[in-house]
């Protein structure tokens, strides 16, 4: 199956993920993972679905509020999926996703919606089980804060809003690249004052 992606934002470089609007597809299981305003994307997809009731009967929805606190979980729960799970955070959502993936067969469709951090981490779990990435649809909604790996200490800082920022593990001042690793589910952060220690440009809010 060939997926045509309609980029929401034109990617700046070729490793930057591209996102598209979710659309329902025939499947034996619809695995839906969303955070924050991603709930709206799922609701809108279902509104357009040809077989809404059939899809809901085979849908497993996992949701967590966004990093900025955006909580649209009530609307998502109200659509009446066969299974709905609400987690307080992404790390508390992932163990359930891993368990569900153990039983997911070919013919499962994956729908990921919300922030890049949620999408990237869910996508990584799915790809680790061997599903082809063409079975995974991704729609970016809500906060644009980034999950960034420090290339120096390898620690990941969640919800990075400013550029440059201080690594939450080793304390180096990092600038945020668009270079993205699906395997790590993170953008890359590189020391900005390596050549001139202490000369750190003023931080600006780049991701909200």
């Amino acid at each position: 199956m060939k997926t045509s992606l309609t980029p929401v934002d034109a990617p700046s470089i070729r490793s930057r993920p591209v996102y598209a609007v979710l659309e329902s597809r025939p499947a034996s299981l619809h695995l839906i993972v969303a955070d924050g305003e991603g709930a709206d994307a799922v609701v809108e997809m279902l509104d357009k679905a040809n077989d809404r009731s059939g899809m809901l009967a085979a849908a497993h929805v996992m949701y967590t509020p966004g990093p900025d606190g955006a909580d649209h979980g009530a609307a998502l729960e109200a659509i009446g999926a066969a299974q709905f799970f609400r987690a307080p955070t992404i790390p508390s959502l992932l163990p359930r996703l891993q368990r569900v993936l153990l039983d997911a067969h070919m013919g499962t469709q994956f729908y990921l919606a919300g922030t890049e951090g949620l999408i990237g981490q869910a996508e990584r779990e799915i790809m680790n089980t061997g599903f082809p990435h063409v079975a995974i649809q991704k729609e970016h909604r809500g906060s644009t804060v980034r999950r960034v790996q420090c290339v120096h200490c390898k620690g990941i800082t969640e919800n990075v809003a400013t550029d440059p920022f201080k690594c939450s593990h080793c304390g180096l001042n990092l600038f945020v690249r668009d270079h993205y690793s699906r395997r790590i589910a993170a953008f890359q952060g590189v020391n900005i004052d390596a050549e001139d220690p202490g000369k750190v440009p003023e931080s600006v809010v780049r991701f909200k």
Partner: peptide
């Protein structure tokens, strides 16, 4: 960081 990327991704920068 780059292991697991495809040809265009690892050359992206």
């Amino acid at each position: 960081f780059d292991i697991g990327m495809n040809f265009h991704e690892w050359h992206a920068p």
